[in-house]
Design a protein around this nucleic acid. Structure first.
Length: 259
DNA sequence: TTTCTTACA
DNA sequence: TGTAAGCA
């Protein structure tokens, strides 16, 4: 009972002095809505950096708290502990602000610094064969996959061009490839919305959207930069997994019907 | 005694 | 993920 009258463990004095808030093991866990036991588990799995030690007590910071919240949120969304570990590693990798900005430039750059390929419409027809029509070209331009300039056609991305040609040679109709591209663009926009929503909720959320101080603004800017590689990693990972599952199912189906 | 870890179920 | 027992 006497223990009840003691401190709640957070160091408000330190916080008021501009220092970082410190939490005891039990306090971070409660604040983040996870069990103390799992706190340790996340640490073991490398999801959570170790706390600062002071004798036998472990001190956790606000960074630990935010990360814990992220972990438990992601877990709630069905991500595995391993998956989250990879995401966090990716996040960490984008760590320093300069590196983040580097990554940001990388991701913002159209088609990731690829050499454009220019050809005439005639060459284009030859490349894609009889399946390619002017309508296809028009749609591709609409989707931003090519730029049209009179008789000349420019692909900003050689890789994308080669991938498309390969698909066409495999027998996939050009029109459907363009449909897929369209679909991907729409889905990508939805994904981006989703991530920005997450971000707004968890990074900006608590403080609301009042006027931000310079340091808060820095925090937000940094978090936005950090979001990019993480979001990219999530999407890439999930896409790879989904493709793996689909292909596996497809192969299984083929094997089954051939028996 | 409390706080945390180890180890096992 | 719970928990009993050991440790500092």
């Amino acid at each position: 009972m006497g223990t009840e009258a003691q401190t709640d463990g957070t160091e408000d004095i330190a916080a008021a002095a501009g220092g970082e808030r410190r939490y005891r093991r039990e306090d971070v866990a409660r604040a983040a809505g996870v069990k103390v036991r799992n706190l340790r588990y996340y640490q073991e799995r490398g999801l959570l950096p170790p706390p600062r030690r002071e004798g036998r007590i472990a001190w956790y910071s606000d960074d630990h708290l935010t990360r814990l919240r992220l972990i438990s949120d992601l877990l709630g969304r069905g991500y595995t502990v391993n998956g989250i570990g990879e995401l966090l590693a990716a996040w960490e990798h984008g760590g320093g602000l300069s590196q983040l900005l580097g990554l940001e430039r990388e991701m913002t750059r159209d088609w990731v610094q690829e050499e454009p390929v220019t050809m005439t419409r005639a060459e284009l027809r030859e490349l894609f064969g009889p399946g390619a029509t002017a309508e296809h070209t028009r749609r591709a331009a609409e989707l931003g996959y090519v730029r049209l300039d009179g008789e000349r056609v420019t692909y900003p991305s050689r890789r994308l061009l080669e991938a498309t040609v390969a698909l066409v040679r495999q027998g996939v109709p050009l029109g459907e490839i363009l449909d897929a591209g369209d679909f991907v663009q729409v889905q990508a926009a939805a994904l981006a919305d989703r991530f920005v929503g997450l971000f707004r909720q968890h990074v900006i959320g608590a403080e609301g959207l009042g006027p931000l101080s310079a340091s808060q603004l820095d925090h937000v800017r940094e978090a936005v930069a950090a979001l990019r590689p993480v979001a990219g990693e999530v999407v890439a990972t999930e896409f790879a997994r989904a493709m793996g599952r689909r292909v596996e199912a497809e192969v299984a189906e083929l094997l089954r019907t051939e028996q």
